[in-house]
Design a protein around this nucleic acid. Structure first.
Lengths: 221, 221
DNA sequence: TCGCTAATGTACGAACTAGTACGTTAGCTA
DNA sequence: TAGCTAACGTACTAGTTCGTACATTAGCGA
């Protein structure tokens, strides 16, 4: 408990507003993702920080606003990743498959984000609704999908009109379910959807599914 | 607040253990689904019942066990619905499409159940793991899928070996996502996945997707 | 270098919340 | 019909939890 714990401050600064805020957000993200909004404790978040509870209220205002800030940062990270998507040099079929795979990878790599989204849905997305930032964040991935779909339809590779938002929902649903429902699915069906040895299998399955859907001859029904 | 509130008891009974338990489970289901496990309040559940908090502890033992009981009943309802599945008189393609549609309908009709499953996943499925009942409940739908897949593969309609559990995951993921992530998806993309006028569209989309996947010629990749 | 303010820490309180001790009664059964 | 027990109600408590009043200080700018 002595200052020996602290291994010679890298910055030479004790007071660093930006770092304090970032550290609070880091811990809060973990705690909210682990325990849900109501399950997480402000005191516990503070305790796992190098600062105190007072700072949470100083910088964020309260538990509710802290959760909103956590969501905002999590979505920002995802949108930034989407902006780095580079698949449009591929032919439409390969491009969509690649996009699906990258979505798959991103979901797998960010289970905390998936959990936060689940939690936010339990609460009716009220924090997103109340956030200006999240209202106008958009989705670069959607634009990419839109362009690939247009190219695919023009070339005749893709059958008829598929909506970009719908395709995004289709891809996301599989990726999301696999991570979000991992526990109940595993407990009930004895299969771990996120087991490393199944990873390639499910990744290919998603790609096959999406491509099959886009390239199938539609029968009348 | 007088006894006039109560419109002449139908049963002529004041004490009815079964009805009391059922009423507690009904209200608890609503409250847990609405607010999450930690968000729900035992006092509030009791208040919305014709009985008192004491009875919750008398019959269920505590909040944790009450939630487990809620889950057990919810899963029992779903399994009973699955047992009424009657699609095997159809040809494999029609049978799978019908099964997917019934799964779609069931998810739509039981949003509370979807929310409970989301909540249980936030908590690592610990209640399912701790429940004997849920451990051996099985899934009739899975057996149906298994038989249809076998028939479809034998007749050559379905390409190669698709696992029943995987197909179940594929169908469920779309149905689940549509209901569970309705709020965040709507807030971010401006589209209500559960809007009545979109219902047929998404129902057909799911069927098309699954059939396309099962009947596609697999390319090497 | 002096003072001012952003940044931080401490201690506390009011309200809530799961759970329980204790008392009561309906209505079945002998 | 007497009495016994499952079923039910009331009132309370111990511990928790969000939030805040008040005190302090680092370090930048004049």
């Amino acid at each position: 408990m002595t200052s020996v714990d602290e291994p010679a401050r890298p910055n030479g600064r004790i007071r660093d507003a930006a770092r304090t805020q970032a550290e609070i957000l880091d811990v809060a993200t973990q705690e909210f993702a682990r325990l849900g909004y109501d399950g997480a404790r402000v005191d516990e978040i503070a305790a796992r920080t190098r600062t105190t509870k007072r700072m949470i209220y100083y910088y964020f205002g309260g538990k509710e606003q802290l959760f909103t800030a956590v969501l905002e940062r999590a979505y920002t990270v995802i949108r930034e990743a989407e902006q780095k998507l580079d698949v449009e040099h591929l032919d439409p079929v390969a491009a969509i498959r690649r996009l699906a795979e990258l979505t798959f990878d991103h979901h797998e790599q960010h289970p905390d984000f998936i959990r936060l989204v689940s939690i936010e849905n339990i609460h009716g997305a009220e924090h997103i609704a109340g956030s200006e930032k999240l209202g106008r964040i958009g989705s670069p991935a959607l634009d990419v999908i839109r362009r690939i779909l247009a190219a695919g339809q023009e070339s005749g590779l893709f059958t008829a009109d598929v909506d970009a938002v719908d395709l995004h929902a289709m891809i996301s649903s599989f990726c999301f379910f696999r991570v979000a429902n991992r526990h109940t699915f595993g407990a009930l069906f004895g299969r771990d959807l996120v087991a490393p040895e199944q990873r390639e299998h499910y990744r290919a399955m998603l790609g096959d599914m999406v491509i099959a859907y886009l390239t199938a001859e539609r029968s009348t029904h």
